[in-house]
Amino acid sequence: MTSTHEQPAEQRESARIGLAATGLSKAFGGVRAVDDATVSFHHGKVNALIGPNGSGKTTFFNCVTGMIKPDSGTVTYDGADITGKAAHRIARAGIGRSFQLCRIFPRMTVLENVLAAVRPPSRTRLLASAHHRDDVARARELLSRVGIEHLERADARDLSYGQQKLLELAGVLMADPDTIMLDEPAGGVNPALIERIAGLVRSLNAEGKTFIVVEHNMELVMSLSDHVVVFDRGRRISEGPPSVVQNDPRVLEAYLGV
């Protein structure tokens, strides 16, 4: 499962399937949030997952990242079964994620927020200082990459919402995942910041990171993604390149309710 970690970007096979779900279902009471969904995402691409409100996108995210256990179906990552595994195991397999309503550690500093994602090389190193020189250097590099390095000593709760979104992204990157799942990265942030986030996604993708992005901002989805998957009522109704999906009558029907 860790074989993909060391792989240089230029050697990656873009056709390789990373995250895949087969027949995935999850019901809350009588509501089938995810209903027999079968989807797969290729490595090296910016994938978008779109669909009307309540179509099961976030539940799908939560099922594949181990936050909730699916009722049935399987989830694999790089061919290995990760169905129902604990969230931290899935994270360690190389999948990072952000949350819909940006989640950070409010009463820790910005720098500590990023350092919390450090994966100690061994158990004995767990008692080593959290402010290890190399870790701090990498954390600062990531903070400056997302553009909030001047805030490193502020409490995370004192940041604006947009800054918190950038901080969350820096934390996800610190764990060095191969696949990054973003749940509404553009939700509730201003247009300039959306552009900054989009730029980050593009440059990270160029370095070999795979993205799976849930997003309602269609302009962003169409300009950013290589591949779009459309959900409606908990299942995939269409997929393909942005231009194809945009004109798919099934998608229009789902969105407009025609």
Binding site: F105, R107, A117, V118
Partner: peptide
């Protein structure tokens, strides 16, 4: 720092590995 992350937001901490 991991323990404090749990105190702040346990699910988020787990999602970070």
């Amino acid at each position: 720092i991991g323990l404090k992350a749990i105190r702040e937001d346990e699910d988020k901490a787990q999602a970070l590995g």
